[in-house]
Design a binder for these strands. Structure first.
Lengths: 126, 126
DNA sequence: TGACTTCTTCTACAAATGTAGTAGAATTGT
DNA sequence: ACAATTCTACTACATTTGTAGAAGAAGTCA
């Protein structure tokens, strides 16, 4: 599932809490996003069309619920990026991230911990 | 610098070897990309307009050279993704990657090594 | 029950993107 | 020198994306 930039903004707000109606979503958008209410509605309609969101009527108004989970959206986005910019593999992507990005000592320890756990989970011995 | 999907395809081919002329780039595109020669030219022109590529004349023909490095393009793409899908931080992104993606033991060791080095580079003591 | 307020559904429209065709200039092979 | 090939510069056009306005249906409050 492929989301556009504007759609990500809406989805992020929706994932924050749902079901939610357009008005609530509007209230959760980042401060620098000043969209007309109808813009939000348009985006929601498009998301419903592409089955990323489910719409349900409650009286006259619509209530929205994500069908696409954040994790899945993130996964797709990462796959697409790896595909397009890192020879289709996650290895180089992670490699790049770990080398390039400045991490705090704490973050680094945390990542190492994850890697170690990950290793144990796979039943690999020390 | 923001590249579109089609532009990434062109840039990937250009980064592979340059300077290069349109015809060479055409020859390096992934097998599943069957663009008309003029499509490639159009894309190259757009890339020149947005200063991601430099064009130089050699006789009648054009020779292209990247102005935007692959690393920088990758970095921008990752930043944009982190921004849009991971609360603007790399931490969660890496976390997600490390947790989600299946790595081979070798890859894991390699990543741990990078993390450790990284730590040393920062002059952090054990 | 009328005046607001709030929603919904449609329609609109410019800019960005993907993808190419045309026509004419330059190069090349014979 | 001419035909065939190859390039370039323009133009074109359908889709997708970002962003919203208009008009009418519903709900709400005095």
């Amino acid at each position: 599932m492929r989301l556009t930039e504007a759609e990500w903004v809406i989805m992020n707000a929706l994932w924050e809490g749902h079901p939610a109606r357009a008005r609530e979503i509007a209230g959760r958008l980042p401060a620098d996003v000043n969209w007309a209410y109808t813009t939000i509605k348009t985006l929601l309609t498009r998301l419903v069309e592409k089955k990323a969101v489910q719409e349900r009527k409650e009286g006259n108004a619509s209530v929205y619920e994500p069908l696409l989970s954040r994790r899945n959206a993130q996964r797709s986005a990462l796959r697409a990026l790896a595909e397009q910019a890192f020879d289709g593999a996650f290895g180089p992507l992670m490699h790049f991230l770990l080398e390039q990005e400045r991490l705090t000592a704490k973050q680094r320890r945390e990542l190492i911990r994850i890697l170690e756990n990950n290793r144990k989970a796979k039943g690999e011995r020390k």
